[in-house]
Nucleic acid binder design. Structure first.
Lengths: 125, 125
DNA sequence: ATTTTATTCAACCAAGGGGTTGACAATCAC
DNA sequence: GTGATTGTCAACCCCTTGGTTGAATAAAAT
């Protein structure tokens, strides 16, 4: 599970951690500030923050005896880029299939040498 | 972990499942076709597909004795929307902090009652 | 120097995840 | 029907995870 993307997705798979991210988007916060709304120990919250930090989603600095947590908004792009890439790819494929079907309905003539992968199964990568 | 978003993120936290999604973006595929590149049993792949299906990321239909798997590209939006919302929110906050700092540099006049949380520290990457 | 505050570390536990193998179900091909 | 193909279900293992409590660290306050 060592790769960055896996760690990021895993980090956001937990509702408590997602809520923390949502709150950190508003402002930085210390561990105890973050822990306050949840009905778990401070240690549990600290663990959650470690997960987020290991995923690169937040950074923690020292300031007096408190540890302000900061959301690293930029790195979220890694996830959206990954998702968007394949979503778009799938939709493009769907769009072409649609066009092919429309063409078959309009004029069922000899369909030239269309993209074969859309007409049958097509091997995966 | 029952909510949709948690299931989706958890589903994509596994590299094998992400690879499956990547391949399904190219074309639908049966379970054994999907299993072929991986060095695990068909049952393990079937489990992975169940996770993806439970998350709503793929659908499975019956066709003869085979089970074609189809990527549901649209639902990916749920994740990107969530991510983008908080990323933008955090960046907006950062942008305003920047403006405030610039203003303080330009004219260190009476700083009114600004948002206290933004005056504390503020640190970039 | 001692105590208080804020946080992490360590050890533990119950639950869940990903892998396995073996048995079952459903459909096609004889 | 019988047999082969394709996939799921069930039981089990081991490892990770989210939670706990208790001890340790670090800086502030006294």
């Amino acid at each position: 599970m060592s790769d960055e993307l896996s760690k990021m997705f895993a980090a956001l798979a937990d509702p408590t951690r997602r809520d923390m991210v949502a709150r950190l988007a508003v402002s930085d916060a210390t561990v105890s500030q973050l822990a306050e709304p949840y009905d778990v120990s401070i240690q549990a919250v600290s663990k959650h923050l470690k997960v987020l930090a290991d995923a690169g989603l937040v950074t923690r600095t020292r300031e007096a005896q408190t540890r302000p947590v900061h959301l690293e908004a930029e790195v979220f792009d890694l996830m959206t880029k990954w998702i968007e890439r394949y979503r778009r790819q799938a939709e493009e494929r769907y769009r072409r299939l649609d066009a092919l079907l429309a063409e078959m309905n309009d004029g069922p003539a000899a369909p030239g040498g269309e993209d074969e992968s859309t007409t049958k199964k097509g091997k995966a990568s």
